[in-house]
Design a binder for these strands. Structure first.
Lengths: 191, 191, 191, 191
DNA sequence: TATGAATGAGTCTTCATTCAT
DNA sequence: GATGAATGAAGACTCATTCAT
């Protein structure tokens, strides 16, 4: 028990562990977050994982949180650099990794979304992320269309792209991002 | 391969194992199909699982096949009974369990869809299922709209409903089937 | 128990099984002789292996016997064809497979010789084989030297070549047959 | 790699395991080194074997290393006590156990030699052992003959004795050490 | 405060052998 | 006579978690 004191070293270690968990989550999904793997990746002793996080679930939550923040920050940075807004929307919907890594990255992202269903302790976290996520998406869509999205439009586009991608994933379509891009353009044009 | 199934008794045991695997799959996803769990559920010794299925993957495949057949059969039965075609479409998209079990059943169904992406040995099976699935969906949509669906329309409706439901899942919306029903009506009306 | 009747079909099956065991022995050593493997290779039902041979040991014995006979027959055939007698001696000492397969074949042959130590039921068989083996070696050496070997000379040459090869095996020398050939020439010249 | 060995207590346990592995190797060959067997012999829980050695191969390597060191130390001790140098040479070639245990000990030693050929991960270890082994053999032969062995003479004697013993083993000669002794005297006299 | 040590429970899979039919 | 069915025991290995120091 006895929550570890918040020494500077302790904070550094916590951060190392969370970063390792986030990496593993992005690369291999929830199952990849194991005590051993996290400790090795973070370069800390195995027991540190249970010392700083009272259960694996806690570590999973912290990793998911960190990963989501990183992805949001990435998308925001692209927005600032005035990157093609379509791509930023896709980054938000499919994850920035989908730019380079294709099918697998998207698969893992959806696994993450769905897999949270088995992990009730993540539910709150995911919903909170959604709020920031939607705000950014709203802004990106504004740039795409040149006007403020109507109420519910963000959700409609999200749903449409997600749905198309889901089918693509099941059929092992090698370029889900391409599919998503087409659906996005069509959805935007239809309005 | 292998797969003894000569005698009637052997067939019966095989069926027991497949049924157990299908149940576990429906309840706990792919990860829930383990030798021990299947053996216990089927009430057979552990070694029987490897006697009838030379690898766990084979058992997973058989379980998925059985589960899909059951769900198709359920939907088909509803069609014959002239049930509300909207509901049949939803059965096909969300699984018949979503009628009674709500959120969890839908979540598990999506888990299954996504999880299949990670299991290349299921690809062939999934493709085959897709054919029967689409044919039935085509018929159900015909009843909904009163006309034969245009090419690609089945896929478009599928994508739209799936996308809407995915968002509902993340937000822990208690009645994803309701959300899906609304999306379906809207999509159909839009044509 | 009840020794299976000696029907024609039974005899054919026995022969198939023994041949399969001999092949597996030559390819993978004693450990490779397993009920499953033998049955598969012979194309007979698994239970036939225990039906025709009351234990695995019996099958191992029969396989070893057959393999040795084959190797002797091969060497004899070469002798009749007036092949280079040095090579025939090497066939006898290292096995005919050592011509083409090199290190591995020789390794397996020595494993067979030594491995018999753990299998007392093979002792008699091995000794019997030695008698035929030595007779043939005597004849081959006669051709090599042009004269009848002195008493004990066969054994001396055998020991010398075996010893040299044993060292070569331990040091993973890739061409033990080459080493053996050199030792043989030297040993013969020294007389 | 891994290999925890920081604390004294950990070291002790590690040593227990290695000793158990060495014993099993001497008694039953490489195949006798199994997690279960080692754990039982060492009196530790099964999981301790994988905690201290990340794979069975590592444990096999450590066991072989220990056994070889013991045998070398035994021979060296005899050398210091000015034991009959012939016997020391035989200790080196047949293992010290061959003094008391006769046939079986020699058989197991050869099994070990041959078995090493199948285990490439032991190659480095074997090479290192060979260096110490040859140095000691050189010294022992010096005492036997009263002069420094000529280059290659150590290997020649090794091969000759090994070859003779191999034949003795196959013929289940009850006193392989006696045979080896005779061969050794003859080989030395011939120079 | 940290962490090496430790382990019970569980993972998939293989195999020789028995037995009922 | 022949064989499908069956299984207990064992194989290597993984892992979350606890605990003594």
């Amino acid at each position: 028990m006895a929550a570890p004191k918040q020494t500077e070293k302790g904070e550094r270690r916590r951060a190392l562990l969370v970063a390792a968990a986030a990496e593993l989550l992005a690369e291999g999904g929830f199952e990849a977050i194991r005590h051993r793997a996290v400790a090795e990746r973070a370069g800390v002793p195995l027991a540190a994982t249970t010392y700083y996080f009272s259960s694996l679930d806690e570590l999973v939550g912290a990793g998911l949180d960190r990963l989501a923040r990183e992805e949001l920050a990435d998308a925001r940075a692209c927005l600032d650099v005035r990157d093609d807004p379509h791509e930023i929307v896709l980054d938000l919907l499919l994850g920035p990794r989908s730019r380079a890594e294709g099918l697998d990255a998207v698969l893992r992202r959806f696994e993450r979304l769905i897999g949270s269903g088995r992990r009730p302790f993540l539910a709150g976290l995911l919903r909170d992320q959604r709020v920031e996520f939607d705000a950014l998406l709203d802004e990106a869509l504004t740039r795409v269309t040149g006007r403020r999205p109507a109420p519910g439009e963000v959700r409609r586009v999200t749903a449409l792209v997600d749905g198309v991608v889901l089918t693509a994933l099941i059929e092992a379509e090698p370029d889900p991002r391409g599919i998503a891009r087409a659906a996005l353009r069509e959805a935007v044009a239809a309005v």
